[in-house]
């Protein structure tokens, strides 16, 4: 929300004041995101006011997959399974806005089981506000703003998606696709869309159910894929609840690209 103290000041001036501070409190980061969203500011607007202050090129990790597949639980495990000392971590978690009322219930925080996580990271839930593609219309400007605020590692959790929500691939460095082992046959993998832009498939074995035939098909698809986008695509079989597969996942993320993550396994 815009505070009373902000009344009378143009939104861009408030953002300029926030950005000019050496360290930004969570409340200022939060207010900045609201201002960007409410005014539909774009990166070009922010560039005008950001001055020559350094912008970190944050490592951006996208988490996507079907509704209820375990994206938030996966994110929780991801945050618990590493020591992020030296990183400034932010999470943007997106849930859908109603097309009818514009309202939303944003429930991604409930999977964060360790309260200490909130002491060290910035976590913001956002509604899609009419945007299609799995993200929010302001996401690019918000990520730019977070980088200007000094965040160096940003996780973006999309809404629950299907085949066609591929926007996340444009906004992040690595797309982790959480997938169930009962997600169809080999023809599903020939289809364009999300399967094409996923860098890592994390097969989340919920309730211990694992369809091994699907894993074989998925691995075969991954090894034959000529897209080879950024890393992989790679297939990891694991569990967001037990933590199985996360060591392998982090090894993969470390290996990825020259600007690899310098994070120690916990």
């Amino acid at each position: 929300m815009i505070c009373k103290e902000d009344k009378g000041y143009p939104a861009l001036e408030i953002l300029r004041a926030i950005l000019s501070k050496l360290t930004k409190a969570d409340s200022e980061v939060a207010r900045g995101i609201s201002i960007i969203e409410e005014n539909n500011f774009k990166i070009s607007d922010l560039e005008l006011i950001a001055g020559n202050q350094a912008r970190n090129q944050a490592k951006r990790i996208g988490i996507t997959g079907a509704p209820g597949i375990g994206k938030s639980t996966f994110l929780n495990r991801l945050l618990l399974s590493q020591d992020f000392t030296g990183y400034k971590v932010a999470v943007i978690a997106i849930d859908p806005s109603s097309n009818i009322t514009k309202g939303a219930v944003l429930g991604d925080r409930i999977r964060i089981t360790e309260s200490s996580i909130f002491e060290t990271i910035y976590f913001r839930s956002m509604a899609t506000r009419g945007a299609y593609g799995g993200l929010n219309a302001s996401i690019e400007a918000v990520l730019y703003f977070l980088e200007k605020c000094g965040f160096t590692l940003i996780f973006v959790e999309t809404v629950g998606v299907g085949q066609n929500e591929v926007k996340v691939a444009e906004s992040v460095d690595v797309v982790i696709h959480i997938i169930d082992s009962n997600t169809g046959d080999d023809v599903q993998m020939e289809k364009a869309g999300l399967m094409e832009v996923s860098d890592i498939f994390f097969v989340n074995t919920r309730d211990g159910n694992l369809n091994s035939k699907f894993i074989t098909i998925l691995k075969s698809f991954a090894s034959n894929s000529r897209m080879a986008p950024k890393v992989g695509p790679e297939v990891i079989v694991g569990s967001a609840i037990s933590g199985e597969g996360f060591e392998e996942l982090w090894n993969l993320l470390h290996r990825n690209q020259e600007n690899s993550l310098q994070i120690e396994n916990r």
Binding site: S97, S98, T101, K102, G103, A104, V105, L106, G107, R109, I110, R111, S125, A127
Partner: peptide, 8 residues
């Protein structure tokens, strides 16, 4: 029409 954050 509200955006509700439910924290569990």
């Amino acid at each position: 029409g509200f955006e509700v954050i439910y924290s569990g």
